[in-house]
Amino acid sequence: MTQTIVDIRDLYVQYRTFDGQAKVLNGVNLTVKKGEKVSIVGETACGKTTTVKSILRILAPQASIPRGEILFNGSDVLKMGYSELNKLRSSGASMIFQDPTMSLNPVFTIGEQMEAVIRYSGQSGVEQKSVRHELAVKALEETAMPDPERILQSYPFQLSGGMRQRVCIALSLATPRDLVIADEPTTNLDVTIQDQVLKILKQRVEAKGCSLILITHSFGVARETTDRIYVMYAGNMVETAPTQELFREPLHPYSRALMSCIPRLSGGGMAEGIPGRLSNYHNPPKGCRFAPRCPEAMPRCHEEKPESIDVGREHQVACFLYDKDGGK
């Protein structure tokens, strides 16, 4: 049995706002095994980033976690003290942010920033500057960066977006990790280099044998990069399945609707889109959060929250359509 790196169980996260508590995460379940590449697909503001930020406990100060567990290598992140948490952050998991123009400190050189991260990674020998420098150069070389020495002396504003994102990838894998989290790493890049950056990310993660959580709103990106897909809607994981299986047979009405939004090269005009809007987090629907937009909603869907049901190997769906009791 393969080792489980991350196991999120029934996680609830809410944000304090002027209008009261926004109940964003509504019982999220997610597991990532060692070496597995998993993606979370969903619309903007469905809670993807909140889910992964809670793994590193870097949520905004207004956020609170009333319920749930996040097990990282078996120990609960939410119960960790400062030093344990710092160990998780410095050598357990690392995160690549969406906007590479914002995720590097503008007044320090790339070298200063990489060496700081390496310095606190808990690896042996990193007290020496020469070791840190070597590791930084190696990490940049591995992400196919030309002239690493020059990059290390540059400030972020001197590099292009694609280069900065590659620096971020190098940073996240400069020292050994169990997990890399990439939050829409290519959304803010030019289309021409999105693919290149994605390939480098995938190749590095595979070479280091670590696990990957990739957040994206593009099924295409998810399909190319990851082994398994989580479909997220309004703070719930509505369906998860191995990539091929999900594309062959999406079960949840939301997954099916999302799939039909992908424009096809084989004609048929523009995709349709999903009617309705993402639900309001301050006053979310009582039952299934997708019910108000769901073409197949039953009376029960408006009353009860559907739990995840196993429908195949590694394939789970949270929908009453697949409940043995049916839609009573």
Binding site: K53, L56, I58, N86, K87, L88, R89, S90, S91, S94, M95, F97, Q98, D99, M102, S103, L104, N105, P106, Q113, A116, V117, Y120, S121, C168, L171
Partner: peptide, 11 residues
């Protein structure tokens, strides 16, 4: 983000 990132790296 860069401060979040640095915090996430355990500095």
């Amino acid at each position: 983000d860069y401060i979040l990132a640095e915090r996430a790296y355990g500095i």
